[in-house]
């Protein structure tokens, strides 16, 4: 066994930089996924049939095909179809955001349905319009219930983000491979970024626990 961790030392700043590169698109993708997911969830529970059908078809498509395929289609087929030279960053954000929104919409839909129907009735009886009722009364209660499931989705997304290395986006994973190719040692840089991923997920988990505690006021 020839382990030599000193070899990666010059490359540590290069790999550390990858944290921000990864986080950059993961954060944007989570936000996009959450917003589109919420809208899709409202479509699914709403009474307008075309919107409901659209949301169902959307979810079925994005859950029914591999994420890496979606990423490839967006990155490789966009120039062919629209003559637009899409950047790796935009491709990654779109693929992960759109994909995640399908899962998030199902989580939020379940959360909304789990809120006592009496809450809706109480709000309606007070003359509160649908929009305000959803934003102020129903969604906050739904979010509290689904927070663990939502955190799970964000954690998955953060980890799966490593597949953007396949389209040449210089994220954490890709940087480990680059370093490996440079120093002809693979275990050390892979282990190094593995620890970084783990650390990121830890921070995310703690954030989730903290949020859960904050939202549980009133229990």
């Amino acid at each position: 066994m020839n382990l030599d961790f000193s070899q990666i030392v010059p490359y540590i700043p290069f790999m550390i930089e990858g944290i921000w590169v990864t986080l950059q698109f993961v954060i944007v993708a989570i936000i996009i996924g959450f917003i589109i997911g919420t809208v899709l969830a409202l479509f699914k529970i709403g009474s307008i049939k075309p919107l409901r059908m659209f949301a169902d078809a959307y979810t079925s498509m994005f859950r029914g095909t591999p994420l890496i395929l979606q990423l490839m289609i967006i990155y490789l087929a966009t120039p062919q179809l629209f003559a637009y030279d899409i950047s790796p960053f935009l491709s990654a954000v779109l693929a992960f955001g759109l994909n995640s929104s399908a899962y998030v919409s199902e989580i939020i839909r379940a959360g909304i349905l789990a809120v006592d129907k009496g809450q809706t009735e109480a709000a309606v009886a007070l003359g509160v319009p649908y929009r305000e009722m959803m934003i102020d009364i129903i969604l906050p209660q739904a979010l509290k219930n689904i927070l663990p499931a939502l955190m799970n989705e964000f954690i998955t997304l953060t980890k799966e983000s490593a597949i953007v290395s396949t389209i040449g986006y210089l994220d954490l994973m890709r940087r480990a491979q680059v370093v490996g190719a440079n120093i002809y040692l693979n275990f050390e840089p892979l282990l190094f970024v593995g620890l970084i991923y783990w650390g990121l997920i830890m921070v995310l988990s703690l954030l989730g626990k903290w949020l859960e505690r904050r939202l549980s006021v009133g229990d």
């Binding site: 809450q119 109480a122 709000a123 009886a125 509290k144």
Partner: peptide, 15 residues
């Protein structure tokens, strides 16, 4: 708005 309603199970907003 002009019709108040009180329910058997209260339905206060818990949050």
């Amino acid at each position: 708005e002009t019709i108040g309603m009180v329910f058997q199970h209260f339905y206060l907003f818990p949050h």
